[in-house]
Write a protein that binds this DNA or RNA. Structure first.
Lengths: 400, 400
DNA sequence: CGAATAAGTCCAATGTATGCACTAAACAGG
DNA sequence: CCTGTTTAGTGCATACATTGGACTTATTCG
């Protein structure tokens, strides 16, 4: 019942089949034209024509002829070209800026990050610092013979119709895309902006702990707790692009008050600030890195308060996750952000609480894992979305 | 990253545009060819050709020439034909079987229901009774000049890969579609089977309290509690088609044990059985209808136990809904099933608990409403899915 | 009553996928 | 070593849905 369906004309057909062929190459490389014809359901003739176009776009290149030992004429295998087309991912976080360049084969070609405190900094200052980083890495990409065709930026906040609210950065209703478009170098695909939890989810899904999962929940735990939800390989954004606010699920109706106005929100029990406070880690410098290390040391030393705090967090997470799993039915749950570091203590607690508290969990219990990309999941995911856009619409990069 | 993308050829293009034109007529009827060309982005020529096809399928017919007062030649308005094409919805519930025929204009042309106790009855007996009902209504449809092109069946259970588990019917791993295909009359579009909560959600979305909502949560409350989730007009099924099990969200970690193995599940606090028990309504005949009326009478009489029971249920529902709203971000929540009857008491309680407990609720609080279709939402939704399939793929009805 | 305007139809042109015939490159066996 | 077989990739005429523009039809305005 969605209105703005677009008409299909001949050009549309061609675009779709072009993306189909490119997708076939991406998933089955190295692959011959003949096999692509089988995979896509198109004729050999059509596949050959589309491949010619893709080679022109420098998205696809011939690989070494793989001797198969088969009988007839051997095919000429095709693969995604490891250049020059590449995507740029950027991330703004409370404590650092990061950038990452992926080529079409999903290989990390360049990465760079800058530690700096962005909390409370003026948005345009932060954006200027990000732009400097972007320019630096764009230059390096040029030197390496790479052409960046698009950028995606991960922000630690909620996007509602282009207005970003990022409490941990002190951003309120910032019109991010305009700000970024002015500051960042222009590219064929322009600039995408998304939630750090959403992009982190995609990063882990494609390159990390979520690989192979069709449906999947990524828990991004820092001061706040967000969730990135992936269903059948697609990001689920909810009605207004603001789904996945796991941090304000009520896990204890009689619990402490939350800044959101509610009581007993997950964030108040399992958020990093709450956890550190409960574990008795002193405020110190405010550098989370140090405080987190302090916490893990206490846990290793079997400090009573620390263990108890993590236990309480695990029980809260279990309640929230049972809820989320019953509603969304994912196969895998990945703990990311700072909570990935705490996974060795959290996961057993959660599993125990789930087993005791929500036993069946829709017939199958989802696999619980720790993030494997650590702090890099969001940048990687951001860069990955650029590649995904190229795969979905290869001609878009040629327009510029 | 989903594999089985289908190739697009000329025929595909035609099908898509045919559906586009039909959709345009459905949403803007009565509408002229010229206006359709603007709406769809196709040329007048193409629209005219597609309309001819649709008239041949008897899906579209000319309406009375509406005098617009405009200058040039007046257009010939087109509308969806109120016949003969129609869809059949069926429902199996614990206490009744129901059927409903909708024509393309979404008008209810026929309805019929049979009260009978299906709990514990052998699946094939229940299906035989349903088949008898279906035959009766198919005959009546024939008499009325209607051609039923497809059927959808609503079942009160979870479908996992064609195996139906319906605890309230005593069905375990029943291969429903084979059973139904044998028993029901053959039709062009075949038989669809889905969860009663899912189809109820669509019924309310299209014809009831959810009209106009883009994104939306339907709570189907009986003994168990299920949810149908609609995002941007599409049913959200989760990874394995089993999303929306709201009944086993934990709302009180210290609450009573549930048959699912967990503790403090919503169902144990707000399910109809639990509610009736807590309110002190005697077991009586087991006819829910009577017991529910008993409960509402007690509530009208301001009976303490009854009010307290509903209050507890409302608090539990508030916790579950805050969780669901934070994860899914719908605009509207509709209470259906037996809980629609309790809505006058439940809604204020839920709203109060939400205001106290989860205040902000993602910036906007969703509107809370009672179902307006009552027991009919699932059959209506089922019949509606048949029409939706016709609109999505008009040529499918011509194959048979 | 004629000019202007808009709806709908006819027809040649465009462009994409198709089907089939053809060439190219390997292997198997005499 | 040569021939037949098998499979990969290319070339060309064909089919067909959409397009764009010219044409016909029906109504209003002056």
């Amino acid at each position: 019942m969605t209105e703005p369906l677009r008409p299909t004309h001949l050009g549309t057909m061609r675009e779709r089949n072009l993306a189909l062929v490119l997708g076939g190459i991406a998933r089955h490389q190295p692959v011959t034209r003949a096999r692509l014809a089988e995979l896509t359901g198109l004729t050999k003739t059509t596949v050959a024509a589309q491949v010619t176009t893709l080679e022109g776009l420098r998205l696809v290149s011939g690989a070494l002829p793989v001797r198969e030992g088969g009988r007839g004429r051997p095919g000429a295998p095709l693969s995604l070209a490891p250049g020059p087309v590449a995507g740029l991912g950027l991330e703004v976080n409370g404590h650092y800026l990061a950038a990452c360049v992926l080529d079409l084969t999903h290989a990390v070609r360049l990465r760079e990050s800058v530690a700096c405190d962005n909390r409370g900094r003026e948005p345009h200052e932060t954006v200027a610092a990000l732009a400097a980083l972007a320019r630096r890495i764009t230059d390096r990409a040029g030197d390496a013979g790479l052409t960046l065709v698009g950028t995606a930026v991960a922000l630690p906040g909620v996007l509602v119709e282009d207005h970003v609210n990022a409490p941990n950065l002190g951003w309120e209703a910032v019109t991010a895309s305009a700000l970024l478009a002015d500051a960042l170098p222009a590219q064929a695909l322009g600039i995408g902006v998304d939630n750090e939890a959403n992009l982190g989810a995609l990063g882990e899904l494609w390159y990390g702990a979520g690989r192979g999962a069709g449906s999947y929940l990524y828990l991004s735990g820092e001061t706040g707790i967000g969730a990135g939800i992936v269903v059948d390989g697609e990001l689920f954004r909810g009605a207004h692009g603001a789904a996945g606010e796991l941090g304000h699920v009520v896990v204890d109706p009689d619990g402490p008050a939350c800044r959101c106005g509610g009581t007993g929100c997950l964030e108040q029990v399992a958020g990093l600030d709450a956890l550190l406070r409960a574990a008795g880690v002193p405020d110190g410098t405010g550098r989370y890195e140090l405080r987190l290390t302090d916490l893990t040391r206490r846990l290793d030393d079997r400090d009573h308060d620390a263990l108890e705090a993590v236990d309480a967090a695990g029980r809260g997470l279990a309640v929230a996750l049972v809820g989320a799993v019953n509603l969304l039915d994912p196969d895998t749950v990945v703990l990311g952000g700072s909570h990935a570091r705490l996974a060795p203590w959290l996961i057993p607690t959660i599993e125990k609480a789930v087993a005791r508290g929500g036993g069946r969990l829709r017939g199958r219990t989802p696999i619980l894992r720790a993030s494997t990309l650590g702090a890099e999941s969001a940048v990687r995911g951001a860069a990955g979305t650029v590649l995904a856009r190229v795969l979905a619409d290869p001609l878009a990069i040629a327009i510029a």
